[in-house]
Write a protein that binds this DNA or RNA. Sequence first.
RNA 1: UGGGAGGUCGUCUAAUGGUAAGACUGCAGACUCUGGAUCUGCGUAUCGGGGUUCGAGUCCCUGCCUCCCAGCCA
Length: 570
Amino acid sequence: MSKLNPGKDSTRGPSNFVREIIIEDSKTNKFGGRVHTRFPPEPNGYLHIGHAKSINLNFGLAAEFGGKCNLRFDDTNPSKEETEYVDSIIQDVRWLGGDWEDRLFYASDYFGQLYEWAVQLIKAGKAYVCDLTAEQVREYRGTLTEPGRESPYRNRPVEENLQLFERMRAGEFPDGARTLRAKVDMASPNLNMRDPVMYRILHAEHHRTGGKWCIYPMYDFAHGQSDSIEGVTHSICTLEFEDHRPLYDWYLDQLGIYHPQQIEFDRLNLTYTLLSKRKLLTLVQEGRVSGWDDPRMPTIAGIRRRGYTPEAIRNFCDAIGVSKTTGTIELSLLEHYVREELNKRVPRVMAVLRPLRVVIENCPENQVEEMEAVNNPEDAGMGTRKVPFSRVLYIEQDDFREDPPKQYFRLSPGREVRLRYGYFITCTGLVKDNAGNVVEIRCTYDPATHGGNAPDGRKVKSTIHWVSAAHAIDTEVRLYDNLFRVEDPNQVPEGQNFTVNLNPSSLEVLKCAKVEPGLRGAAPGNRYQFERLGYFCADADSAGGKLVFNRTVALRDTWAKIEKAQQGKR
RNA sequence: UGGGAGGUCGUCUAAUGGUAAGACUGCAGACUCUGGAUCUGCGUAUCGGGGUUCGAGUCCCUGCCUCCCAGCCA
C-alpha cells in the first residue's frame, strides 16, 4: 500500500510503470535524485474518485521516495473557475491524506513570468499576434488528414508583435479579437503543433487576480512552465495529454528553462458511474441530484457524505494499479474495499428499516430486560453494550413470510428463530388489515433461551435483528443505488443525452425506520453497521433530535441472490 | 483515411526470453448467535498469422481491433 503520509513506514507500494520510471531516474541521477510531483486540478468543479487516483499516485510516489508533492491550481480560465471550487478541492485533498505542506500554488501566481516568457518568444521570432477569428483559425488549422495553412499574420515584424501584444494586455481589444500564437509548424501531423494559441483575450474577473489581466495563457503555455518554476521532476497526467507532450517539451526548450518530464497514465473509469466534471456539473445544475455532495455522486464530497473512508479509497487506488491501457474498473471492487475497511472499524447496531410489529404473548407486560450485545465481532476491544428487550418489538418485514419459499430460513407461522442477543421465538399467529397485509405477528418466546442460547442445544436456522418498540428511536434512512442504470452511462441512444441513463430509483427514503436507543445523538459522520443490512453513516441533515442515516453500502446478501435466482427460474 | 497510444481470465493488474500469477466478480462447499465476516475449492486469458530461439505474453515482420486529437477548455 502506498502512503500519503511520509511519517509512516516505508513498505513498498504495488509497482507500476510510473514508479519504475522514477526508480530508473533515481539510478541514473536524472534529476539529481529528486522526486517532486504535483497534483494540478482546475478549480472548475468538485474533485471525484478519478482525481483520488491521481492524488494517491502523486502524493504516494513523493512520500515513498522521500520527495515532495505540490498542490497547484491550474487556474488559467477565469470564465469557469471559482473560489468555491478551490475551497472544496483543498478540503478534499486534505481529507484524502495529501500533504502539500507549504506548497500551495496557483498557475495564476505565474502570470507575470508567463507574460515575460511570451515576450521572449516574440523577440526570438517564435510567436506572433494573429488577427484571425476563432472560426478562421479553425479553417486554417486543416484537418486530421490535411495540413493547415499559415496565418497571413504569421510573419509580422517582431516590433509590431511586441506592440500588439502589449496592447492586448492593455485591454485595447475586445474578447477574441486577437491571439498570441506560437510559430511552430502548420503542417505538423500533430494538430497541437499547428501554431497553437498561447494567449487569448478574456475580459473576465479572475478569482485571484481580479481585473488585473484581460489576457490569459492557454493550458499548454502555462502547465509546463509552472512545473518548471516549481522544480517538478515527474509531471504525471492522463492519457489525453499524450499529444500535448511535444508542445510541453517545445515551450520549455524554446525558453531554455528547467525541463521536467511529462508521463501519462490512464484515467479512472468506473462502471455505472460518470467521471466528467462537465457532466457532473450538469447533474447539479439541472437538480438531478441535491448538490455536488449528494451521496450518489462520485465526488469526494459525495462519497464522504455517503460514508466512504479515505483509507478505503486509498486501498482501492492501490489495488487498481496504474497503466497506459484504457480500461474500466468494476464498481464492485470499490465497494469491496469500503466493506473491508468498515467491517474492521465500525460498531454493530440493530436497526429495523421497514418495521413489522411483533408481540411476544408470554412476555410480561411491563418487563424490560437489558440484553448484552457485542459491538464488533471483528474486534473484541470494542466491547459490549446493553439493548432493551420487551413484550412488543419490531422486526424487518422482510424477515417474515406467511408462505415461506424454499430455502427461506426466517420467521413464518409455526417456525422458531433467534432474536439476536435476545430469545428464541416461535410464530403462533398473525394479524392482517382489511387489505390483507400482515400488520402484526404473534409469537411466544422461550425464557430459557435468554441471551440467544438454548440450554438444550437445539438449533434454529436463522437469527434476525429487532428493536424494542417502546425504546426504539424513529429515524429516517436513505438507501442509495447506482446513479445510472447502465454499466456505461456514456453509451447514449442517438439524439439523446446521458441523463436518459439515470436510474429513477437511485434514492429511496424510508421515513419510519427504527434504531436501537444507543444511537440517540449520533453525530453526522458517525458510521455503523446495521446488522444484516449494511453500513450506514449519520447524515449532516441529522439535527435537533432528528436522525438521518445514509446507507454507505449494503452487506453481501446471499438470500437476495437465492431469491433472485428462484424468481429467474419461474 | 494523418498523428499519438494501447490490446493477458468477465474486470483490473502482474509475469522485464524460462511452470501465465493475484485481486474483484461468479459458482460450489465449510463454519457461523449477522444468509455478515472468515476459510476451502472451481472456473475462464496472452487479438490473428508468420518468423527468431532449446524455449516467446515478452524479440522481429505482418494483419486486425480499441482509445485519444481538428476549443481562443483543461
